[in-house]
Amino acid sequence: MSDTGDERDLLAAEYVLGVLAGTEREEVIRRADRDDALNRAIGAWEIRLAPMAAIVPPVAPPADLWPRVEQSCGLTAAPLTPKAAPLRASEPLGSPTRLGRSRGRGFWNAVGFWRGMTGLGFGLAAAIAILAVVNRPAPPAAEIPVASAVLAPPKGGAPAFVAEAAPDKRIVLKPLERVALAQGKDLELWALPDGETVPKALGVISKVGQTVTLPASVHAPMQLMVSLEQKGGSTTGLPQGPVLWAGHISALD
């Protein structure tokens, strides 16, 4: 193995071991996006070191954890919680229940999905607040985003992309985490303007981020969604794979 290969392999090992902190750790995550060899080295070290996890004794999680997981995944059959219900009622999302029935399964299998969307509200507000802070110092005037959203799994979990919209209808998508994509798959971006029920395809996007321009027919406020599709994107004009991440963009003007 070359020196570079050795160096890369050790970096992967340090990352998996967990000794890298802060920017060093984030740099590895970013680099692994572009560097397949690093990505593979990380995967190999994950497997190599995993047996060490056996030295840690199992501890049963609290009994209320499963209901929480169920709730976050939109799996609970229970009625909407009081916390979620008013929010859902106030969301101008068309008639998701009807949609859910009409499509049957997948991301439109909708109660969980749409409930997840409502839950995103609070998180979004918080995340946008954080963005507002960390976006300082201000970029040049032409690039000032007028609205932004974090795209997170509809059923809860860590956000993966941030979308920043500019007045000229450009949307800049940047990954927040390292996005792994299986071979033969692509990510496709969709816009679902509030009040509408059929998402509009915005095209296949790169896992390392991309700038897209909204077609004239698409207006904020809207949901932005990223679905997992076969290579080349959906062939039907509707998401065929699951929606991995979604977020809400408020008005652009």
Binding site: I29, N39, I130, A182
Partner: peptide
Amino acid sequence: ASALTGTGVRLASPS
């Protein structure tokens, strides 16, 4: 945003 990048969880490589 470092406050946000910290939320990322790397997935094991699919490749």
